[in-house]
Amino acid sequence: MSATGWIRERLAGPVPGAVPGAVTGTWPKTALALPFIGMLLVVSLDYFSNSSVTVEPAITAVPALAAVVSRRTWYPLVIGLFTELAAFVMALYNDVLGQSVHTATVFAIALVAGIGWVSATLRLRQEKALADAQVVAEIARRVLLRPVPDRVGSVRAAVHYAAAAAHARIGGDLYEVVNTRHGVRAVVGDVRGKGLNAVETAAAVLGAFREAAHQEPELAKVAGWLAVSLDRALHENDHPGVEEEFVTLVLIGVGPDDVAEIVNCGHPAPLLLRADEPVRALESAESVPPLGVLDPADVRPPVHRVRVHPGDRVLLFTDGVIEARDHRGVFYPLAERLPQVASGGPVEILDRIHDDVVRHVGRTLGDDAAMLLLQYEPTAHHLPHQPDHQAAAPA
Protein backbone atom coordinates (compact mmCIF):
# COMPACT_ATOMS: atom_id res chain seq x y z
CA MET A 1 0.00 0.00 0.00
CA SER A 2 1.29 3.47 -0.87
CA ALA A 3 1.78 6.18 1.72
CA THR A 4 -1.20 8.08 0.34
CA GLY A 5 -3.41 5.01 0.62
CA TRP A 6 -2.22 4.43 4.14
CA ILE A 7 -3.10 8.02 5.03
CA ARG A 8 -6.57 7.64 3.56
CA GLU A 9 -7.05 4.44 5.51
CA ARG A 10 -6.06 6.25 8.70
CA LEU A 11 -8.57 9.00 7.95
CA ALA A 12 -11.33 6.57 7.16
CA GLY A 13 -11.37 4.98 10.58
CA PRO A 14 -9.79 4.91 14.01
CA VAL A 15 -6.22 3.77 14.45
CA PRO A 16 -5.92 0.25 15.93
CA GLY A 17 -5.04 0.47 19.58
CA ALA A 18 -5.67 4.22 19.76
CA VAL A 19 -8.36 6.06 21.65
CA PRO A 20 -11.29 6.72 19.27
CA GLY A 21 -11.28 10.31 18.13
CA ALA A 22 -7.91 11.08 19.70
CA VAL A 23 -6.25 11.99 16.42
CA THR A 24 -8.87 12.72 13.80
CA GLY A 25 -11.77 13.67 16.08
CA THR A 26 -14.10 11.07 14.58
CA TRP A 27 -17.52 10.45 16.12
CA PRO A 28 -19.38 7.13 16.09
CA LYS A 29 -21.87 6.70 13.26
CA THR A 30 -24.76 6.91 15.72
CA ALA A 31 -23.82 10.55 16.33
CA LEU A 32 -25.12 11.41 12.86
CA ALA A 33 -28.63 11.14 14.31
CA LEU A 34 -28.00 13.94 16.81
CA PRO A 35 -29.01 16.78 14.40
CA PHE A 36 -32.31 15.04 13.69
CA ILE A 37 -32.88 14.50 17.40
CA GLY A 38 -32.17 18.15 18.07
CA MET A 39 -34.53 19.18 15.28
CA LEU A 40 -37.26 16.94 16.68
CA LEU A 41 -36.81 18.38 20.17
CA VAL A 42 -37.18 21.97 18.94
CA VAL A 43 -40.26 21.14 16.85
CA SER A 44 -41.84 19.23 19.76
CA LEU A 45 -41.10 22.07 22.17
CA ASP A 46 -42.73 24.54 19.80
CA TYR A 47 -45.75 22.28 19.26
CA PHE A 48 -46.47 21.51 22.90
CA SER A 49 -45.62 24.95 24.22
CA ASN A 50 -48.56 27.07 25.30
CA SER A 51 -46.55 30.25 24.97
CA SER A 52 -47.47 32.76 22.30
CA VAL A 53 -43.79 33.22 21.47
CA THR A 54 -42.34 30.82 18.88
CA VAL A 55 -39.08 28.97 19.55
CA GLU A 56 -38.33 28.72 15.83
CA PRO A 57 -34.95 30.60 16.07
CA ALA A 58 -33.58 27.81 18.29
CA ILE A 59 -33.55 25.45 15.32
CA THR A 60 -30.66 27.36 13.75
CA ALA A 61 -28.26 25.40 15.98
CA VAL A 62 -29.03 22.14 14.17
CA PRO A 63 -26.73 22.68 11.12
CA ALA A 64 -23.91 23.67 13.47
CA LEU A 65 -24.34 20.38 15.32
CA ALA A 66 -24.20 18.55 11.98
CA ALA A 67 -20.82 20.13 11.20
CA VAL A 68 -19.46 18.93 14.54
CA VAL A 69 -20.51 15.27 14.40
CA SER A 70 -19.89 14.58 10.71
CA ARG A 71 -16.72 14.23 8.66
CA ARG A 72 -18.59 14.70 5.39
CA THR A 73 -18.60 18.21 4.00
CA TRP A 74 -22.03 17.82 2.44
CA TYR A 75 -23.73 16.72 5.65
CA PRO A 76 -24.22 20.26 7.13
CA LEU A 77 -25.79 21.37 3.84
CA VAL A 78 -28.23 18.46 3.77
CA ILE A 79 -29.16 19.03 7.39
CA GLY A 80 -29.58 22.71 6.56
CA LEU A 81 -32.21 21.82 3.93
CA PHE A 82 -34.15 19.66 6.39
CA THR A 83 -33.89 22.43 8.96
CA GLU A 84 -35.31 25.00 6.51
CA LEU A 85 -38.24 22.67 5.85
CA ALA A 86 -38.87 22.26 9.58
CA ALA A 87 -38.69 26.05 10.02
CA PHE A 88 -41.38 26.58 7.35
CA VAL A 89 -43.60 23.97 9.03
CA MET A 90 -43.21 25.73 12.38
CA ALA A 91 -43.90 29.12 10.81
CA LEU A 92 -47.12 27.83 9.21
CA TYR A 93 -48.23 26.28 12.49
CA ASN A 94 -47.54 29.48 14.47
CA ASP A 95 -48.87 31.75 11.68
CA VAL A 96 -45.60 33.74 11.51
CA LEU A 97 -44.72 32.96 7.91
CA GLY A 98 -44.61 36.59 6.87
CA GLN A 99 -43.04 37.96 10.02
CA SER A 100 -39.45 39.04 10.53
CA VAL A 101 -38.73 36.29 13.06
CA HIS A 102 -39.25 33.62 10.39
CA THR A 103 -37.29 35.54 7.76
CA ALA A 104 -34.36 35.95 10.18
CA THR A 105 -34.47 32.25 11.06
CA VAL A 106 -34.36 31.22 7.39
CA PHE A 107 -31.32 33.39 6.70
CA ALA A 108 -29.63 32.25 9.93
CA ILE A 109 -30.08 28.57 8.99
CA ALA A 110 -28.53 29.16 5.58
CA LEU A 111 -25.63 31.09 7.12
CA VAL A 112 -24.93 28.43 9.78
CA ALA A 113 -25.12 25.62 7.20
CA GLY A 114 -22.61 27.46 4.99
CA ILE A 115 -20.28 28.07 7.92
CA GLY A 116 -20.60 24.40 8.87
CA TRP A 117 -19.61 23.35 5.37
CA VAL A 118 -16.55 25.60 5.46
CA SER A 119 -15.51 24.42 8.95
CA ALA A 120 -15.92 20.75 8.01
CA THR A 121 -13.79 21.28 4.90
CA LEU A 122 -11.02 23.01 6.86
CA ARG A 123 -11.10 20.36 9.59
CA LEU A 124 -10.69 17.54 7.08
CA ARG A 125 -7.73 19.32 5.52
CA GLN A 126 -6.12 19.68 8.94
CA GLU A 127 -6.73 16.01 9.71
CA LYS A 128 -5.11 15.00 6.42
CA ALA A 129 -2.12 17.24 7.15
CA LEU A 130 -1.84 15.68 10.61
CA ALA A 131 -1.99 12.19 9.12
CA ASP A 132 0.77 13.11 6.66
CA ALA A 133 2.89 14.43 9.55
CA GLN A 134 2.30 11.23 11.49
CA VAL A 135 3.51 9.16 8.53
CA VAL A 136 6.70 11.21 8.38
CA ALA A 137 7.14 10.97 12.15
CA GLU A 138 6.63 7.21 12.07
CA ILE A 139 9.19 6.80 9.28
CA ALA A 140 11.67 9.04 11.13
CA ARG A 141 11.13 7.10 14.35
CA ARG A 142 11.78 3.77 12.66
CA VAL A 143 14.95 5.12 11.05
CA LEU A 144 16.27 6.87 14.15
CA LEU A 145 14.90 4.62 16.90
CA ARG A 146 14.82 1.18 15.40
CA PRO A 147 12.63 -1.52 16.95
CA VAL A 148 14.49 -3.59 19.53
CA PRO A 149 14.20 -7.37 19.02
CA ASP A 150 13.12 -9.55 21.90
CA ARG A 151 16.42 -11.44 21.93
CA VAL A 152 19.78 -9.70 21.46
CA GLY A 153 22.67 -12.05 22.07
CA SER A 154 22.68 -13.14 25.71
CA VAL A 155 19.87 -10.83 26.84
CA ARG A 156 16.17 -10.35 26.31
CA ALA A 157 15.38 -6.72 25.59
CA ALA A 158 12.34 -4.45 25.56
CA VAL A 159 11.91 -0.73 25.11
CA HIS A 160 9.15 1.74 25.85
CA TYR A 161 9.24 5.26 24.44
CA ALA A 162 6.77 8.12 24.83
CA ALA A 163 7.41 11.51 23.22
CA ALA A 164 6.22 14.63 25.01
CA ALA A 165 5.07 16.37 21.81
CA ALA A 166 1.53 15.33 20.94
CA HIS A 167 1.44 12.89 17.98
CA ALA A 168 5.17 13.46 17.38
CA ARG A 169 6.25 9.90 18.37
CA ILE A 170 9.84 11.08 18.55
CA GLY A 171 11.77 13.51 20.69
CA GLY A 172 15.14 14.05 22.34
CA ASP A 173 15.47 10.68 24.10
CA LEU A 174 17.50 7.95 22.43
CA TYR A 175 18.13 4.23 22.86
CA GLU A 176 19.78 1.39 21.00
CA VAL A 177 20.83 -2.23 21.60
CA VAL A 178 23.37 -4.02 19.39
CA ASN A 179 25.04 -7.42 19.49
CA THR A 180 28.77 -7.09 18.81
CA ARG A 181 31.85 -9.29 18.96
CA HIS A 182 32.52 -7.66 22.34
CA GLY A 183 29.10 -8.68 23.69
CA VAL A 184 25.74 -6.97 23.90
CA ARG A 185 25.98 -3.20 24.13
CA ALA A 186 23.21 -0.70 24.76
CA VAL A 187 22.79 3.04 25.23
CA VAL A 188 20.06 5.22 26.66
CA GLY A 189 20.41 8.98 26.52
CA ASP A 190 18.62 12.28 26.82
CA VAL A 191 19.34 15.30 24.63
CA ARG A 192 18.93 18.69 26.25
CA GLY A 193 15.91 20.48 24.83
CA LYS A 194 13.17 19.46 22.42
CA GLY A 195 12.22 19.92 18.81
CA LEU A 196 14.15 19.39 15.60
CA ASN A 197 17.54 20.29 17.08
CA ALA A 198 17.17 17.58 19.73
CA VAL A 199 16.22 15.02 17.09
CA GLU A 200 19.26 15.94 14.97
CA THR A 201 21.55 15.63 17.99
CA ALA A 202 20.04 12.26 18.94
CA ALA A 203 20.57 11.04 15.37
CA ALA A 204 24.25 12.02 15.49
CA VAL A 205 24.81 10.22 18.81
CA LEU A 206 23.00 7.07 17.71
CA GLY A 207 24.86 6.92 14.42
CA ALA A 208 28.17 7.17 16.24
CA PHE A 209 27.17 4.52 18.79
CA ARG A 210 26.14 2.02 16.14
CA GLU A 211 29.62 2.28 14.63
CA ALA A 212 31.73 2.62 17.78
CA ALA A 213 30.00 -0.24 19.62
CA HIS A 214 31.32 -2.68 17.01
CA GLN A 215 34.77 -1.12 16.60
CA GLU A 216 35.90 -0.21 20.12
CA PRO A 217 36.76 -3.11 22.46
CA GLU A 218 36.65 -0.79 25.52
CA LEU A 219 33.34 0.72 26.56
CA ALA A 220 34.96 3.92 27.85
CA LYS A 221 36.40 4.58 24.41
CA VAL A 222 32.92 4.24 22.95
CA ALA A 223 31.88 7.20 25.10
CA GLY A 224 34.90 9.15 23.80
CA TRP A 225 33.87 8.35 20.24
CA LEU A 226 30.36 9.64 20.95
CA ALA A 227 31.79 12.84 22.45
CA VAL A 228 33.79 13.53 19.29
CA SER A 229 30.82 12.86 17.02
CA LEU A 230 28.53 15.02 19.16
CA ASP A 231 30.97 17.94 19.12
CA ARG A 232 31.33 17.73 15.36
CA ALA A 233 27.56 17.45 14.79
CA LEU A 234 26.76 20.45 16.97
CA HIS A 235 29.23 22.71 15.22
CA GLU A 236 28.48 21.46 11.71
CA ASN A 237 24.72 21.89 12.10
CA ASP A 238 25.24 25.40 13.55
CA HIS A 239 22.76 24.90 16.38
CA PRO A 240 21.71 28.06 18.20
CA GLY A 241 23.22 28.10 21.67
CA VAL A 242 25.65 25.32 20.82
CA GLU A 243 27.68 26.13 23.93
CA GLU A 244 24.75 24.97 26.08
CA GLU A 245 24.00 21.75 24.20
CA PHE A 246 24.78 18.47 25.95
CA VAL A 247 23.64 14.86 26.10
CA THR A 248 23.35 12.69 29.18
CA LEU A 249 23.69 8.99 28.48
CA VAL A 250 24.57 5.66 30.01
CA LEU A 251 26.32 2.83 28.20
CA ILE A 252 26.10 -0.80 29.25
CA GLY A 253 27.89 -3.82 27.88
CA VAL A 254 27.25 -7.44 28.79
CA GLY A 255 30.20 -9.61 27.80
CA PRO A 256 30.58 -13.38 27.58
CA ASP A 257 32.17 -13.52 31.07
CA ASP A 258 28.98 -12.77 33.07
CA VAL A 259 30.20 -9.23 33.75
CA ALA A 260 28.25 -6.08 32.91
CA GLU A 261 30.22 -2.88 32.27
CA ILE A 262 28.53 0.48 32.79
CA VAL A 263 29.72 3.92 31.69
CA ASN A 264 27.63 6.84 32.90
CA CYS A 265 27.92 10.41 31.62
CA GLY A 266 25.64 12.55 33.77
CA HIS A 267 22.65 10.22 33.39
CA PRO A 268 20.40 8.60 36.03
CA ALA A 269 22.01 5.36 37.21
CA PRO A 270 20.52 2.10 35.91
CA LEU A 271 18.64 -0.10 38.36
CA LEU A 272 19.49 -3.74 38.94
CA LEU A 273 16.65 -6.12 39.73
CA ARG A 274 17.81 -9.40 41.20
CA ALA A 275 15.63 -12.09 42.75
CA ASP A 276 15.25 -11.88 46.54
CA GLU A 277 17.33 -8.70 46.68
CA PRO A 278 16.34 -5.03 46.93
CA VAL A 279 16.60 -2.81 43.89
CA ARG A 280 20.15 -1.49 43.54
CA ALA A 281 21.36 1.53 41.60
CA LEU A 282 24.45 0.79 39.53
CA GLU A 283 26.29 4.01 40.32
CA SER A 284 29.94 4.74 39.61
CA ALA A 285 32.20 6.03 42.36
CA GLU A 286 33.19 9.00 40.20
CA SER A 287 30.61 11.31 38.61
CA VAL A 288 31.17 12.41 35.01
CA PRO A 289 29.46 15.39 33.34
CA PRO A 290 27.27 14.91 30.27
CA LEU A 291 28.77 14.76 26.80
CA GLY A 292 29.21 18.20 25.35
CA VAL A 293 30.31 19.83 28.60
CA LEU A 294 33.97 18.79 28.44
CA ASP A 295 36.33 18.84 25.50
CA PRO A 296 36.06 15.47 23.70
CA ALA A 297 39.73 14.79 24.46
CA ASP A 298 38.98 15.03 28.20
CA VAL A 299 36.13 12.49 28.16
CA ARG A 300 37.53 9.52 30.06
CA PRO A 301 34.65 8.10 32.11
CA PRO A 302 35.28 5.30 34.61
CA VAL A 303 33.90 1.84 33.98
CA HIS A 304 31.69 0.31 36.67
CA ARG A 305 31.66 -3.49 36.58
CA VAL A 306 29.13 -5.80 38.17
CA ARG A 307 28.70 -9.55 37.87
CA VAL A 308 25.30 -10.60 36.56
CA HIS A 309 23.44 -13.86 37.03
CA PRO A 310 20.86 -15.49 34.77
CA GLY A 311 17.52 -13.78 35.38
CA ASP A 312 19.02 -10.44 36.43
CA ARG A 313 17.30 -7.42 34.90
CA VAL A 314 18.82 -3.98 34.36
CA LEU A 315 16.50 -1.03 33.78
CA LEU A 316 17.84 2.00 31.93
CA PHE A 317 15.63 5.08 31.75
CA THR A 318 15.59 8.82 31.14
CA ASP A 319 14.69 11.57 33.58
CA GLY A 320 11.23 11.87 32.05
CA VAL A 321 10.30 8.84 34.17
CA ILE A 322 11.73 9.79 37.56
CA GLU A 323 10.91 13.50 37.20
CA ALA A 324 7.22 12.91 36.53
CA ARG A 325 5.31 14.74 39.26
CA ASP A 326 1.83 14.34 40.66
CA HIS A 327 -0.51 17.22 41.55
CA ARG A 328 1.41 17.76 44.82
CA GLY A 329 4.76 18.01 43.04
CA VAL A 330 6.04 14.62 44.27
CA PHE A 331 8.41 12.83 41.89
CA TYR A 332 7.64 9.31 40.78
CA PRO A 333 9.52 6.89 43.11
CA LEU A 334 10.77 4.45 40.50
CA ALA A 335 13.10 2.46 42.77
CA GLU A 336 10.33 2.00 45.35
CA ARG A 337 7.63 1.08 42.87
CA LEU A 338 9.75 -1.20 40.71
CA PRO A 339 9.48 -4.37 42.84
CA GLN A 340 5.67 -4.09 42.75
CA VAL A 341 5.43 -3.89 38.97
CA ALA A 342 8.39 -6.09 37.97
CA SER A 343 6.47 -9.21 37.05
CA GLY A 344 6.22 -10.94 33.71
CA GLY A 345 8.41 -10.48 30.68
CA PRO A 346 10.38 -7.35 29.81
CA VAL A 347 7.60 -5.92 27.64
CA GLU A 348 4.97 -6.43 30.34
CA ILE A 349 7.20 -4.85 32.98
CA LEU A 350 7.76 -1.69 30.95
CA ASP A 351 4.04 -1.41 30.19
CA ARG A 352 3.24 -1.68 33.90
CA ILE A 353 5.83 0.95 34.78
CA HIS A 354 4.45 3.36 32.18
CA ASP A 355 0.88 2.85 33.37
CA ASP A 356 2.00 3.36 36.96
CA VAL A 357 3.77 6.61 36.05
CA VAL A 358 0.68 7.90 34.26
CA ARG A 359 -1.47 7.04 37.28
CA HIS A 360 1.00 8.87 39.51
CA VAL A 361 0.95 11.98 37.33
CA GLY A 362 -2.76 11.85 36.58
CA ARG A 363 -2.30 13.01 32.98
CA THR A 364 -0.05 12.50 29.97
CA LEU A 365 3.65 12.94 30.61
CA GLY A 366 5.08 16.40 30.01
CA ASP A 367 8.54 15.20 29.01
CA ASP A 368 10.01 12.54 26.76
CA ALA A 369 10.31 9.24 28.61
CA ALA A 370 12.32 6.24 27.43
CA MET A 371 12.91 2.95 29.22
CA LEU A 372 15.08 0.01 28.18
CA LEU A 373 15.01 -3.28 30.07
CA LEU A 374 17.71 -5.92 29.62
CA GLN A 375 17.16 -9.36 31.13
CA TYR A 376 20.23 -11.60 31.23
CA GLU A 377 19.26 -15.01 29.87
CA PRO A 378 22.32 -16.62 28.26
CA THR A 379 21.84 -19.74 26.21
CA ALA A 380 24.37 -22.56 25.95
CA HIS A 381 26.03 -20.64 23.13
CA HIS A 382 26.48 -17.54 25.32
CA LEU A 383 27.56 -19.20 28.57
CA PRO A 384 31.15 -18.43 29.60
CA HIS A 385 33.74 -21.11 28.98
CA GLN A 386 34.23 -23.42 31.96
CA PRO A 387 37.77 -24.86 32.22
CA ASP A 388 38.12 -28.59 32.54
CA HIS A 389 39.63 -29.27 35.99
CA GLN A 390 39.88 -33.02 35.46
CA ALA A 391 43.38 -33.52 34.06
CA ALA A 392 44.19 -36.76 32.31
CA ALA A 393 46.10 -39.29 34.42
CA PRO A 394 49.72 -39.82 33.37
CA ALA A 395 50.36 -43.00 31.52
Score class of each variant (00 low, 15 high):
residue 221 K to T: 02
residue 159 V to K: 02
residue 38 G to H: 01
residue 250 V to M: 07
residue 169 R to V: 02
residue 157 A to Q: 06
residue 30 T to W: 14
residue 85 L to V: 15
residue 245 E to Y: 13
residue 367 D to L: 05
residue 99 Q to P: 06
residue 371 M to W: 10
residue 44 S to H: 13
residue 5 G to D: 11
residue 50 N to D: 15
residue 16 P to S: 07
residue 169 R to E: 05
residue 362 G to L: 08
residue 346 P to T: 07
residue 356 D to V: 02
residue 112 V to M: 10
residue 240 P to M: 06
residue 307 R to W: 13
residue 21 G to C: 06
residue 59 I to Y: 11
residue 54 T to Y: 09
residue 196 L to W: 15
residue 375 Q to G: 02
residue 14 P to D: 09
residue 100 S to N: 10
residue 8 R to M: 08
residue 45 L to V: 15
residue 285 A to N: 13
residue 171 G to H: 08
residue 335 A to D: 11
residue 243 E to V: 06
residue 375 Q to M: 03
residue 353 I to Q: 06
residue 266 G to C: 04
residue 40 L to T: 11
residue 287 S to T: 14
residue 186 A to H: 10
residue 182 H to A: 02
residue 317 F to C: 00
residue 85 L to Q: 06
residue 341 V to Y: 02
residue 59 I to A: 01
residue 377 E to C: 15
residue 256 P to H: 14
residue 348 E to L: 10
residue 169 R to I: 00
residue 136 V to T: 12
residue 349 I to P: 04
residue 122 L to I: 13
residue 327 H to W: 15
residue 52 S to H: 12
residue 67 A to R: 00
residue 285 A to L: 15
residue 51 S to H: 14
residue 142 R to H: 07
residue 378 P to H: 05
residue 209 F to K: 09
residue 103 T to H: 11
residue 348 E to N: 09
residue 64 A to C: 08
residue 20 P to I: 04
residue 127 E to H: 15
residue 220 A to S: 13
residue 313 R to E: 03
residue 286 E to A: 12
residue 218 E to D: 08
residue 285 A to E: 12
residue 145 L to K: 00
residue 48 F to R: 14
residue 215 Q to D: 06
residue 217 P to T: 01
residue 298 D to I: 00
residue 42 V to P: 02
residue 246 F to K: 06
residue 321 V to D: 09
residue 298 D to C: 10
residue 317 F to E: 04
residue 336 E to C: 09
residue 58 A to N: 11
residue 129 A to L: 11
residue 364 T to A: 13
residue 174 L to K: 03
residue 6 W to L: 07
residue 260 A to H: 00
residue 271 L to P: 09
residue 81 L to V: 15
residue 100 S to R: 11
residue 327 H to L: 12
